[in-house]
Amino acid sequence: MSVNEILLAAGGALIMAFFSMVGGLWFAGIDRVLAARMQARIGPPVRQPFLDIAKLMIKQNVVPANAIPWLFNGAPVVALASAVTILLYIPMAGIPGLPILQGHGDLVLIMYLLILPALAMVAGGLAAGSPYATIGAQREMVTMIAYELPLAATIIAFAWKFASLGIEHPFSLATVAAQPVWTLVGPVGFMGLLLLLVTMLLVVPGELGRIPFDAPEAETEIAGGLLVEYSGRNLALFTLSLAVKTIVVTSLIVGLFFPWNLTDILAVACCATTAAMINLAFFILKLLVVMFFSVTLVRISVARFRINQVVDVYWKILGVLALLGMFLVMADALF
């Protein structure tokens, strides 16, 4: 990479960070309004998350007496930075120049990066020196281990499919984006992909720590768990990182399963800018739909699981589903 490219990438990353935070908060607002309407409530205005962040920013930032200050204060920054970083690797709507770090990382890297914000939260929770936060941190680690299995199984299934077709860079997201995976499989593989999609949709609430997989935060049990001691700016950063992470995981699902662009489907020919705008709007719509089904609807229609049930669900149910899906995708080649 030349200096120019690095500068360009850095500038792009900053712009990306800004838009992902704004977008993430906007998504959070929409999520809350939709949830409220489904519960027959009026709900907050869509801009509420922005107001919340603005309020948190001017609030006192309390560091508990028995916390480890550098870790306690550093964790939110790491969480936000790593969440934004992942976004630099995920293709979006075929817009030229995106992802900024195209060609520098693949699905395996993303899988690793996805752990980072969660790890930062664990570190912050442990550094807080509160029993509730410690319990929350332990639970977060367990949750992380739990959802890795279905997530990994899905990614392996994808890579195997591309590799078996002799496509170069099977783990690259660009490959997945270029060729919608549904077109590569027969009916059996289609079934398998459906299973994988369901699995991935249910990994999202775990990644984001939403009900039913929010045992690490569990407001009514451990009073917010990991985040119990956080306030002010630090809490704002964590909230932002979760908002960005919402965009990250939904984009990942869209990128894996629904990479189509509106301009390609309708075969419209127009200038590049207009096409990019249309595709971006369509992409955001896809993200919203994915978020509605995997976050909003799920989190309001079930009760919270105990931590052992989280593991049971991810390993015994979703793990099996994902493995079955993977097997079907593989078996598809035989027919």
Binding site: Q39, I211, D214, A218, E219, T220, I300, V302, A303, R304
Partner: peptide, 16 residues
């Protein structure tokens, strides 16, 4: 009880 379980929709339903 529903709220304690994290099942807020049932909570809103019951109170409605």
């Amino acid at each position: 009880a529903a709220h304690e379980l994290g099942f807020d929709s049932a909570f809103y339903l019951a109170w409605r």
